[in-house]
């Protein structure tokens, strides 16, 4: 079975959010629903240099996160109706005819991927732009990225091009769910935890509907 995945280069993402907007446009998403979200991670501290001067040490980078179509998706395990399921090609999908809108998948997903649509009373999420894939195209977030920070392919191809790293602060450890995403971390990410970095645009990205 072909397993698709995203690649995200955090070191060159400018945080323009074009991917987020393109996704909303393509999927005709109403206010508050974001299949892809750009998280701004920021942290700082003061440190003493060799001359004894206190200088600021700052880290700031962006993370563009959508559904990672995990190998062991916690949303699928949590869904009481089996509306959330893994499709034939490994894509995690919501069956709108089965979804009861309990939002338990939203709690269970460590990436906040499932989004509640109050108008329809059901959950919705990224499906890798399945219709585009069938036409041989890449998902709209990938093709719209100005910095070419996003890519899409089979996981096998992505790993051969970009390596196999799936972890970056503050994403949950990839061992939890096996996300189908390859990440090139921002150089500053290595000391983000030490600098107590955190997501600074929570109000913007949270799904509070």
């Amino acid at each position: 079975m072909t397993k698709y995945g995203f690649y995200f280069d955090s070191s060159c993402c400018s945080g323009c959010k074009t991917c987020q907007v393109a996704c909303k446009d393509k999927n005709d998403l109403t206010e508050g629903i974001r299949f892809r979200r750009v998280y701004e991670v920021c942290g700082s501290a003061w440190e003493k240099d060799s001359k004894g001067t206190w200088v600021p040490d700052i880290v700031a980078y962006n993370l563009s996160v959508a559904c990672n179509h995990c190998e062991n998706p916690s949303c699928v395990a949590a869904c009481p109706t089996k509306a959330m399921h893994i499709g034939n090609d490994g894509i995690v999908l919501v069956d709108p005819d089965k979804c009861v809108g309990c939002r338990y998948c939203e709690w269970a997903c460590p990436y906040g991927a499932p989004q509640y649509n109050p108008q329809k009373g059901i959950m919705q999420k990224c499906d890798f732009c399945s219709d585009y894939i069938k036409e041989g195209k890449k998902p709209v977030c990938v093709t719209s990225c100005l910095m070419r920070a996003l890519d899409f392919d089979t996981l096998e191809n992505l790993e051969s091009h970009y390596g196999a790293n799936r972890d970056v602060f503050p994403l949950p450890h990839s061992g939890q769910t096996g996300p189908a995403v390859i990440i090139k971390a921002h150089p500053g990410a290595a000391k983000a935890k030490e600098l107590k970095a955190s997501i600074i645009n929570r109000e913007e990205v949270r799904n509070d509907r």
């Binding site: 395990a77 949590a78 869904c79 009481p80 109706t81 089996k82 509306a83 005819d97 089965k98 979804c99 009861v100 809108g101 309990c102 939002r103 338990y104 509640y116 649509n117 109050p118 329809k120 009373g121 059901i122 959950m123």
Partner: peptide, 22 residues
């Protein structure tokens, strides 16, 4: 009442295998 789509409520017993909600 807190379900977005109560019409599908009968389906909530479908995942006793892994869902605590079920």
């Amino acid at each position: 009442m807190h379900l977005g789509n109560p019409g599908n409520a009968t389906r909530t017993l479908a995942n006793l295998h892994s869902s605590w909600l079920s």
